[in-house]
Simulated scan of single mutants.
Amino acid sequence: MRIAIEDLEVALSGRTVVSGVRLVAEDGEIAGLIGPNGSGKSTVLRTVYRYLRPHAGRVLLGDTDIRALTAVEAARRVAALPQERGSDFELSVRAVVAMGRTPYKRAFAGEDRADADLVAAALRQVGMAGAGGRRFSALSGGERQRVLLARALAQDPKVLVLDEPTNHLDVKHQVELLALLRAQRRTTLLSLHDLNAAASLCDRLHVLHEGAVVASGTPREVLTPRLLAEVFGVRAAVVEHPLTGDPLIAFDHRVPASAELVSP
């Protein structure tokens, strides 16, 4: 399912946080939002999963304004992994993942075989198949992250919205998560701080800076030394990854950069 954000403006506590944002994730595409802290990435994502109501503009799922959908209709189409992680669920891991099936259940309806299969598959996909009986609150941060992703997958949505999904994950589980998202080929809109992960995973990148989109395109088109200097304030070279051929950013960790240090 295609996502299109049109002329989005969001104000929080009387202050405009994002303005004039236009971006798209085509059907089956993985689109990444990158930018410095405070650039508006989470705010944009929160409008897509309806946590925030925009002051102006709209979010389209296909041809439908997401605000025209009921909460249940929206939840059947969009599943979110927000930055605000639940940590106090006194529930089993399996019960937390099974919450992803709620949009499909009538009040007080029990779990059926299809629900059970989807929950089991989601746990297996995130490497937590043997953890269903553990208490969610007793998990490590990385384990909680994977369980909450499993909950989103169990929701069987058309669209995934993920805010910093690799947070708290060790390198092995980061690589596994990125491989899982690639294999899904489900329309995905996500924010990432790791620019090399974004370059490897995403079909399209949108760069946010001070609440506005300043560049959009493929990772190879977007991740240039000049943009990295102007937007992120770092000096870097962009080379070809020796294993995958993706753009690979080599940062200069000794010298902070400004745009004038970088040749066009």
Rank of each mutant, 00 (worst) to 15 (best):
V93K: 07
V21A: 06
R2M: 13
A4T: 14
G40E: 09
G57Q: 09
A68V: 04
R53G: 08
R106C: 01
H253F: 14
N167M: 13
D112A: 04
I34H: 06
A197M: 07
Q174K: 07
A25R: 06
G20K: 03
R124F: 01
P36K: 09
G40P: 08
L177M: 13
R106Y: 02
E210I: 04
M128E: 04
S39G: 10
A107S: 10
A236C: 07
D112L: 01
S87N: 11
R220F: 03
R85T: 13
D246A: 15
Y104W: 10
Q125L: 11
S42H: 05
R46L: 05
R204M: 01
F251A: 10
L208R: 01
R186S: 11
P165H: 06
L189H: 06
L52I: 10
P225S: 11
G132K: 10
P82I: 10
A114E: 15
Q125F: 05
V234C: 12
F232V: 09
V147F: 07
A236N: 08
L201R: 03
L139D: 02
R58D: 02
D7A: 15
K158F: 02
E143T: 03
S39T: 12
V239R: 14
S42I: 03
V234D: 09
L139H: 03
G28S: 06
V213R: 08
A237W: 01
R146C: 06
S19M: 08
Y51C: 05
R186A: 11
D156E: 15
N167A: 15
R146F: 04
V238K: 09
L91S: 01
L148C: 12
L223H: 11
S42E: 05
F108V: 06
G40W: 09
L195C: 06
L178W: 03
T187D: 09
V159Y: 00
L195F: 03
P247R: 07
L118I: 09
L195W: 02
A199M: 01
V96N: 12
D115A: 07
A229V: 10
E240A: 15
R204F: 02
A150F: 13
I34Q: 09
R2W: 03
L23E: 04
I5R: 11
L52C: 09
S137V: 08
A197K: 00
H253D: 12
R204W: 05
L223V: 12
S92Y: 06
H241F: 11
A79N: 08
V262W: 01
L177G: 08
D112F: 07
T224L: 11
S258M: 12
L81I: 12
I30S: 04
D88L: 15
G32D: 02
